[in-house]
Design a protein around this nucleic acid. Sequence first.
DNA 1: AGCGGTTTAGACCACTTGGTCTAATTGATT
DNA 2: AATCAATTAGACCAAGTGGTCTAAACCGCT
Lengths: 215, 215
Amino acid sequence: MFKFKKNFNYLGLLGDENPLLRNSQLLEATINEFSQKKFEEASLNDIIKNANMSKGSLYHHFGDKFGLYLSLMDIVIKKKISFYSQFLEKKIDSGDFFGTLKELVRVTMEFMFNDKRMHHLFNRNLEASDELKNQILKFFSYDYNQGFGDLINSAIQSGQIDNRFTPEFVACILEILFSNSHKLLSSDNTSEELLESIDQLIELMQFGFSKNNRR
Amino acid sequence: MFKFKKNFNYLGLLGDENPLLRNSQLLEATINEFSQKKFEEASLNDIIKNANMSKGSLYHHFGDKFGLYLSLMDIVIKKKISFYSQFLEKKIDSGDFFGTLKELVRVTMEFMFNDKRMHHLFNRNLEASDELKNQILKFFSYDYNQGFGDLINSAIQSGQIDNRFTPEFVACILEILFSNSHKLLSSDNTSEELLESIDQLIELMQFGFSKNNRR
DNA sequence: AGCGGTTTAGACCACTTGGTCTAATTGATT
DNA sequence: AATCAATTAGACCAAGTGGTCTAAACCGCT
């Protein structure tokens, strides 16, 4: 159970007034801590140490640990959305499932390549307790972890996905692969190796590992 | 860095003399704690509370937190090996990669179905720090997390896996899928649904999602 | 210069952690 | 029954946690 602070306006933390936007040292320290440890393990003492900040100041601005995490997610979710929006605008709802999937994988990998901490931040959030996730969700009007439901269903109806696969199974596989995509990249990957991994992943999704006539 | 207790014989914890074998209440409490939380988060206080045991007694037998974890892994690794051995004897080194893979998936899922805590225990160990993993490995003469290396290489050489896939990529995909196999099962799965999931997974690995001529 | 609200610093609190230590209890052996 | 080692109980410790609170510092204003 979360105990929220009475008389504290968590909504004030969101948007342009987000105090994290005015202290880049604190923002960095907060990203580092929450991307390395889950919510409960993350240490506020470590954060204020790395940010050269005092405890009083942190609590004055953010109310409590949840407030700090909420502020962080606000920034980071917006960053993810703006990163994906370029792609979402032009490619979604295309009739080409595997083409769309490839673009999604590419953007996801580039987002991760750009700053691996972001990727871990979202994975930690996915693994968090339902209560924490729900409390965070309450503050955002959209579901920032959109599933693949519609995409998959239309691909099955249009016959691009063999109908011996259930939509639930396909969704589960995709979620597993997306949330583990960092494991497909070693730390010293080049751009070409990244593209090569994407090609192999789509090839696997479409035709499997076995050597057969590919299209 | 681990600080080991001087004058304590950790080796004495292994095998038939393992103190966990003589206290089933403690064994259960230890499995529950270490399967739900990672090593650092797991609370000895919670364990002794749930096992109706005193702190002095626990430290007397196990030396420290690492000793308790080591004792647990000793038991659990042996359980896993005995579970797999039936399968490994008859099916390994067969020329049929996808058949072997299917058997491996089946046994893994049955092992997990049998006691989900075991599955989580091994996954937590995989995610643990290298130092903890290495310290545990030192006490066992074999690598209890065997990879798929040999299996994959021979499948590529025999042409069962298309050679546009690198062995590293295949290994990575399989590791991801195996360690997330619990997500393919909902909590109220029947036996038939389990078999159905296995079929879909092998089908995907072999031929992909796309609707094409299968074999 | 002096006022008044905002922000900062850090001592402090209750609680939990892994680990220590001593004293009491138990249990087998003579 | 007496002895002595093995075992257990739990008070205690230092360190770390999230959170509170007061007093000082800061800053814009008139």
